[in-house]
Each structure stands twice: as C-alpha cells, then as structure tokens.
Design a protein around this nucleic acid. Structure first.
Lengths: 232, 232
DNA sequence: CGAGGAGTTGATTCCAATCAATTTCGGTGG
DNA sequence: CCACCGAAATTGATTGGAATCAACTCCTCG
C-alpha cells in the first residue's frame, strides 16, 4: 500500500495505510513532478484551496506575516506530512502560505476526492480526526510556549524542532537544514539578533556547536532542559 | 431533534443536528444535574478522559498553568460548545483543566458512544472534523496574536472575546461576565496590572466604560481596530 | 572582483513585568 | 446593622529582557 517512501526514520506510518487498493486508486492522486525549488511557494495566504498536498520529499514551511510585517513560521512539514488540509476542510481560504525550504516534491489530492473518501471510509475519517487532534494539541502547546517562555527557551525549542524535522547528518552529526538565522528566529518567534546571541551562548556553554551554517547539538539533554524553563 | 436549548442567540446551530432520532437515543446522553458552582473543576490536567461534555448552561474556562506558575486560559466554552473532546479523540490525558466560571450545567457523552457515532455516521464525522478544523484555526490565529501583538492589542482582543462569549445585558449593555481582572489578563496572556492599566486607558479614551466590575463596550469599532495593531 | 545578503556584535531604547503601597469592595460574624 | 477581614482593584516606581538601531565582517555568487 505504500505509494511513497520516506527516507526519514522518524516518519509515522503512512497516513493512507487504512485504505484499500481501490480507494487509493480512486484518489486520483496526482504527482507533481515539478520539484519546488528552495523558496518557491506552494500556496499563498488568501488563496482558495483546491487540493491537499502530501510532502514526498523535502521540507516545507508554513508561514504568515503579522500586520507589523514580522514573519512567523507556524509549522514545518516533512516527508509524509499533509499540507493545507485545515483550510480545505473548513472551506476557508488559506490562513498562511507554504513554501519550500529545500527542494521539495509533492503529491496533490483533489478536494472532492478527499471529501469522498472521508464520507465513505470511517477509518479514514478517524485518521483525519486524529491528525487534526494532534495538530490542535501541538498548536495549543506552542501557544503556551510562546506566551510564557523566554527567548532562551524558545530558541532551544526551535533547535529541538529542527533536529526532529530535519534529522542529523550521519557523519558530521550536523542538523540537515540550511535554514537562515532569520528563519530559525521566525520559528522561535524571536528576532534574528536575539536568535544569534542565544545560539552563541549555547555554543559557549557546550550545548551546541556552531561551524558556519551547520549546527551540531552536542548535549541534547541539556538543550531539552533549557527548553523547559527549568531552574536547573 | 433539539434536546437542549441555549438562551444565547449567538450559539451556532446544534452540534448534533445531523443525527437521527435513534442515533440521539443511542448516545446514552447523560445529563449532569448537579450544577457546577463558580470555580468548580470539571476535569483536571493529567486525568484520563472518559467522556466528552456539552455545555448546557453557563461558561467554562479551559486553563493551564505554565512551569512558572502563571495561568493561561486557552478557551472559553459557552452553551452548545463541546468540552474535552480533543484529548479524548487523541487518547491522551487532558492537557488542561476545565472549571466553571459561573454556574454551569453539562451533558456528558460516554467515550464509546461518541466513537461509535463517528464510525457509523459519516455526516457526524464530518462535523467533528469541521469542529476540530475551526478550533485549530482559532488556535493558530491566537498563536500569532500572542507572539506579535502588544499588551494593548491583546487586552482589546480579550474584551472582544468576552463580548462574544458572554453577550451583553439587554438593559445596561454591560458584558455578562463576572470575570476578575486577573482572569481577563489570563485570557489575554498579560499580567493583572497591565490589564487594569490598559482597560483604564480604554476607559479614558471612551472605548469602554468601566463601572466597578461591569464593562460596557461603547465603541466596538474602535476596540476592534485597537485589537488589530492598526496604526490608525 | 564587486555587491549584496547573511551573520555578528555592541549600544540604546522601551514595553511590560515586577515590586510595593493603597484603596475599594464584598461578604460575614458579632 | 455595622465593623472587620481578606480578596480584588488600582496606582506608582523600578527593573529587566528583548527589540531596535547601528556598524561592521564575512561569505557567496554572478
């Protein structure tokens, strides 16, 4: 039943695993062969969703600009993750934009075919429900974090997220991401300067190691405890 | 099909309206006759959910304490709203606690009867999906607000929320809530003192009118524009 | 090799939290 | 009914953390 592979060991089992072969066929799954280049937009805030996307390869950021012009990254989607389904389910326009952080390939599932499936397959419905629930949980957790945590804690959180989403290089142990400092700050909800300052603190304290663009987490336990305003 | 009434005109159409009579019967809906008093807990963070609740009368706050001890109110549920379904759907323990803000009556729907319904009734599933989607949207919006908005904007948001959730007194036009300043601050994600200061600013600027505990929004348009960091 | 973007570091500002001191209010018992 | 107590509300003073502003270096790539 596996119709796409993920290279990432952390990926949860395939979202579509409950489907029968016919159902998968009925999906009219459309593979987007054009790869999105770094920076390219997949959809734009305000647009009307016509399909959902499944990330096949690469990493996508979902982001939004506040009225003050500051960008906030609300989510990172990696191989196996769904994209843009919230707005589609809600019959809303997109609340945020999605763009490729690195070279990305996607599948597209047309709206009607998605809804059809929900109506016909209770197990699939339940999966969608669980997915939404999980996202809601994450979002509410992040809400708390943003309000209550200090810059130091937020940056630690962000680094842990990168570690999870991008994984590390087998050899160098560096996080497999080429995010800029600004983008890391946009995830953490913090300015670029504060992000840099905090990261260089972590560097000095031997929690991470910075070599140019590459970031190596040398003491993940300490980083985790930094992320949870422990008095330590 | 209506098995509970809400007095609030703003309430959306009943969540269970897609059900047939038999399905409603199958719900084993259990009315909790004991009314929860102001301050009483309905469920506690960390507990294992066994049912979902439907607010029949009153207002409930869902809230959580950060590691620093500061409280954050993540949601207000009024008549017609569902409570505690996210954790139940996810098979998680509660992430937050719920307690009555004013005298509250509830219905209880047992876990298995809820899941049964999802499996058997595609329309109902779709409703749950929409509900989750809407909550997710709200949560993501609130996330942005919290990170990017100033105290003034956050307090304005909070007041608008109160207005929506509690409604106003027909005669006096005061918001029908007896929340303390601290609680308003906990909604806004702001200290009590800042909340008071901001509200008294709004008072001076004739955006709201404060008479002891009661708050009257005199210029809702202005308040709305305050909530959206307009340069105005 | 030049230009511009990314990264870094230091100085300054400012918003909101914290700390502190009163005042007001609502309930309760004498 | 009134005095009193504790909680809530209010106001002022101070502090502190992070944003902002500014200057500079270092890459990277055309």
């Amino acid at each position: 039943m596996q119709f796409f592979k993920t290279e990432d060991k952390n990926t949860h089992k395939c979202f579509f695993s409950s489907l029968t072969h016919e159902q998968v066929m009925s999906l009219k799954l459309e593979r987007i062969d054009r790869t999105y280049k770094k920076g390219e937009f997949i959809f734009n805030e305000g647009a009307f969703p016509k399909a959902i996307y499944v990330v096949y390869r690469g990493v996508v950021k979902v982001h939004k600009y506040g009225e003050n012009g500051k960008e906030q990254i609300t989510r990172l989607a990696k191989a196996g993750d769904l994209l843009g389904y919230r707005s589609l389910l809600n019959d809303d326009t997109y609340e945020a934009s999605a763009s490729a952080i690195e070279q990305t390939q996607l599948f597209k599932i047309p709206k009607d075919s998605f809804f059809e499936l929900i109506k016909q397959n209770p197990d699939f419905s339940l999966k969608v429900i669980k997915l939404l629930s999980e996202d809601l949980k994450q979002s509410e957790k992040k809400l708390l974090d943003m309000v209550q945590k200090s810059v130091r804690e937020k940056v630690a959180e962000a680094l842990l997220l990168l570690n999870e989403k991008f994984g590390v290089d087998e050899v160098t142990k560096a996080i497999n991401s080429k995010l800029t400092r600004k983008e890391i700050g946009d995830i953490a909800g913090v300015t670029t300067e504060s992000t840099i300052r905090t990261m260089s603190e972590f560097n000095k304290e031997n929690i991470i190691e910075i070599q140019g663009k590459s970031i190596i987490i040398t003491d993940i336990e300490k980083l985790k405890s930094e992320a949870e305003n422990k008095v330590a």
